[in-house]
């Protein structure tokens, strides 16, 4: 993988390269499970855990929807295709979350992601339900202090959102 901003080189590939991954994004009204809201003076920050990068994507998405207080209407659904260019894992995570924020603005909540890693990046198919309401607007997922850390159980990241 490429160098990150501080020049540290990654040694391990965090995505399994073959196969189709299907992750369901369960809605959670409380901030619990594999993500936790942590203190950040101005904005919102999440600590997120995952067994691998797909799992981290799922938990980060669930955390984002919990922070936004998103409520869905399952009766109206749609599907969106998304390509995320290959880059550092942090970049791809931020790209994914910012995609969810864009869709949230268009009043869609992503419920399920089918994903495949290709030579050029990630090809994702997103199943979404109509947003019925939300309590907060989140402007963007940022790179601030964002670093994926490998732990004994998998991966961990702190993501700061601008609100």
């Amino acid at each position: 993988m490429g160098e990150n901003a501080l020049g540290k080189r990654r040694t391990r590939r965090l995505f399994v390269t073959s196969g189709m991954y299907n992750i369901g994004i369960g809605m959670s009204k409380t901030i619990e499970g594999k993500f936790k809201e942590i203190a950040h003076t101005a904005d919102l920050a999440l600590d997120v855990w995952g067994e691998d990068l797909w799992d981290l994507f799922r938990n980060a998405a669930q955390g984002l929807y919990a922070l936004a207080g998103a409520v869905e209407n399952k009766e109206e659904t749609d599907r969106f295709d998304l390509r995320i260019p290959l880059g550092e894992e942090e970049q791809m995570l931020v790209d994914f979350l910012n995609e969810l924020l864009y869709l949230l603005d268009k009043k869609w909540v992503v419920r399920r992601v089918e994903g495949k890693k290709t030579e050029n990046g990630l090809r994702l198919s997103l199943d979404a339900a109509r947003l019925a309401g939300r309590s907060r607007e989140i402007k963007a997922a940022t790179f601030h202090d964002l670093a994926l850390k490998e732990t004994e159980d998998g991966l961990r990241a702190t993501i700061v959102f601008d609100v």
């Binding site: 970049q91 931020v94 790209d95 402007k139 963007a140 940022t142 790179f143 601008d162």
Partner: peptide, 15 residues
């Protein structure tokens, strides 16, 4: 959202 998206896009591309 107009401004948020412009900032998001350029924070990414200016890296």
């Amino acid at each position: 959202g107009f401004g948020h998206q412009i900032c998001t896009d350029y924070v990414r591309s200016l890296q």
